[in-house]
């Protein structure tokens, strides 16, 4: 049983986060119960990842703090709205499930196909192309990087990404092959 979901939710609340704009993903499955059962956090489930970024931008303009929780493949889908957030200097913190970093049970049969060797590399290159700094959150000890990310986002007026890896050995799609 992992505590990392609780640790992350506590860290978000310490940083005055009130909303999580969310598209579910397998890599951050460990977060789901923690955040959905936390009455201090309101989860806004959106239909596509780009919405999550725009919703949090609107919250920022309105004086509230939301955090984006999406998967790296959804971030790829959101390239244009991420570019916009960078251009407008929005200090958003992006929690991104770093699918592929830890590897699959059968890496020859990943849902992301040719990405099997390099989701991590692609994710990093993608964020670097947009000028979005990133840090890896791969252990309970890394959770403190979330506070640093909020400070850095505000200081530098730009989005900051935290790449989250699975903390509960969840297998996408259930017990079989990843789907």
């Amino acid at each position: 049983m992992t505590q990392r979901g609780h640790l992350i939710c506590d860290e978000l609340k310490r940083n005055a986060v009130e909303y999580i704009a969310w598209v579910p993903d397998s890599e951050t499955h460990f977060m789901h119960d923690s955040m959905l059962n936390d009455r201090s956090l309101r989860v806004i489930q959106v239909c596509a990842e780009g919405e999550a970024i725009a919703v949090c931008a609107g919250m920022h303009l309105g004086g509230k703090r939301g955090v984006v929780l999406i998967e790296n493949q959804g971030a790829f889908d959101s390239g244009n709205v991420l570019k916009w957030a960078v251009n407008l200097y929005f200090p958003l913190v992006l929690l991104i499930g770093n699918l592929g970093y830890l590897g699959y049970q059968n890496p020859e049969n990943t849902p992301a196909g040719k990405m099997k060797k390099g989701e991590g590399e692609i994710t990093e290159a993608f964020l670097e192309a947009l000028g979005i700094p990133y840090e890896l959150v791969n252990s309970d000890q890394d959770v403190g990087k979330i506070s640093e990310a909020f400070s850095r986002a505000e200081r530098d007026s730009k989005p900051i990404a935290l790449l989250l890896t699975s903390a509960d050995d969840f297998v996408p799609g259930g017990k079989g092959e990843p789907g």
Partner: peptide, 22 residues
């Protein structure tokens, strides 16, 4: 007033965030 340009499609999402914050 706020104008969303360079993120076509997302004006209503920005509006949703503003509506929740305000």
């Amino acid at each position: 007033d706020f104008y969303v340009a360079g993120a076509m499609g997302y004006a209503s999402s920005v509006g949703l965030g503003l509506s929740l914050a305000q």
